[in-house]
Write a protein that binds this DNA or RNA. Structure first.
Lengths: 255, 255
DNA sequence: ACAAAAGTGTTCAGCCTACACCCATGG
DNA sequence: CCATGGGTGTAGGCTGAACACTTTTGT
């Protein structure tokens, strides 16, 4: 058993060591990829990292003495800086040729890292994907020591991506559409206080269709998970909406 | 790349080789476990294998040059003898201490197999679980070279099981309950020709509650996936039910 | 003919839908 | 006081629930 604190690990070990000996600390054929989803200006966005002019999902590996779920939470925390974010398992991507090998060769050479034919990163990886709904303004994206840049992209305007990460994004986008019909989870995308018109617009964006305003409001309120706050006194032209918060967040605060 | 036909592999390699060198052919920390579900005499059953007085789910490993999905299908075929069975991904079990090690020690010693501390089977395994709905009478369970016996068990009367396989079964039982509310897949548990009363009883068994006969029938027929056949002419006391088959099975036969 | 079991119809309630109306606020 | 936009009410239609009724067949 090798217990290694992730922070220590990422600071102390150099890249070479990660790539040559990572399989001593991580399960060698499994990875985790996260689709971190945010919402701003009527647009669904996801957080991506840049390596060598192509983008990829924030992800990581599962430590030998760590559960899969813990790994996913840890990676999410590493990337967003926050605990207790929404996190939901999506699916398994397990194609037989699913490996970075070909794509990484050029990049590693460029970085003057020795190309190791037998390095664990050349392995074929089965990846477990999760999606997480976050409030964009509450998190501060953290870039790792390989990534050059992190940025939010609209789902409608995605950049060129590594390997099969585009398909993972598409799957997440579709999955979210299905899930919100059953579960109330979209408030995770909004600040702690939000209005019904905001929530309404968010659902319309996710589903890509108009929703009846009246019915939407009644459906949401009948769920009983929202608590109305004193009305917003502000600068809008017409009547101002009430603000709402999530009841459970008060009794059992999430952040 | 080592391409090894599974049948050849299972016949030629001896147990010792599987357990000492399996990691040369399989992804070393991943397994697949199947909950194969059948239905007989108003009872939901699952297919289990016996090793050393404890039972376990039929399962297997993913070959290095094989997709996860293909592995699941292959394992299902190995165990049931049939292609194109229903198969649906369920979930990931990835606890950090998820390994057979402790439990296998006693058994391997009993079998006079040398206990190898560093054998790959001692690894911690993340398992990908699937469930499959099958027609009990159409399949002929195949036992592997380790299993002593295979048998169908009622979900209400499960035997002692290896590791966390009981929890996997419970998860599958609950998942099935949820899934049939959304999807029409239960016909997989019945023969190609079946009656509405049979389907009705099956749903009642799965859900564990009474369902209105009239409404059930109308709901099923309105889905449009069933095709009515000439009425059954047989030995029942009252009126005899129509038989139905699945339309898509005729145009696109599943077996 | 009657009992038993399958198939169909009827009624009622509740929910979804669409839209109209009311309310609060800024100009 | 009117335009703007949020909040609420209401009439019509659809679907689901409960149960009654009809049909078929063995005894």
């Amino acid at each position: 058993m090798c217990r290694i604190d992730t922070n220590v690990y990422f600071c102390v070990m150099d890249l070479f060591k990660i790539y040559s000996e990572g399989d001593k600390f991580f399960l060698p054929n499994l990875s985790i990829d996260l689709v971190i989803i945010g919402y701003r200006q009527r647009d669904l966005k996801c957080l991506l990292l840049k390596i060598d002019n192509k983008w990829l999902l924030p992800g990581g590996y599962i430590k030998i003495d760590e559960s899969v779920k813990h790994a996913a939470k840890r990676i999410l925390k590493e990337r967003t800086g926050l605990d207790n974010q929404h996190l939901k398992f999506m699916s398994v991507f397990g194609d037989k040729d699913r490996q970075f090998k070909e794509e990484f060769v050029a990049y590693l050479k460029k970085k003057h890292l020795e190309w190791q034919e037998d390095s664990w990163v050349n392995n074929r990886f089965v990846t477990l994907t999760y999606y997480s709904l976050v409030e964009i303004d509450a998190i501060k994206p953290v870039i790792g020591n390989l990534d050059e840049q992190s940025s939010w992209f609209s789902f409608d305007n995605l950049p060129p991506m590594w390997m099969d990460h585009s398909s993972i994004l598409t799957a997440a986008r579709n999955r979210l559409k299905e899930d919100i019909q059953q579960e109330h989870l979209t408030y995770n995308l909004l600040p702690d206080k939000f209005t019904m018109p905001e929530l309404h617009q968010l659902h319309q964006t996710i589903l890509g269709e108009k929703l009846d305003r009246s019915r939407f409001q009644k459906k949401m309120l009948s769920s009983g998970i929202f608590e109305r706050l004193p009305k917003l006194q502000k600068e809008s032209p017409g009547r101002n909406p009430y603000q709402y918060c999530i009841k459970s967040k008060k009794t059992n605060p999430q952040r």
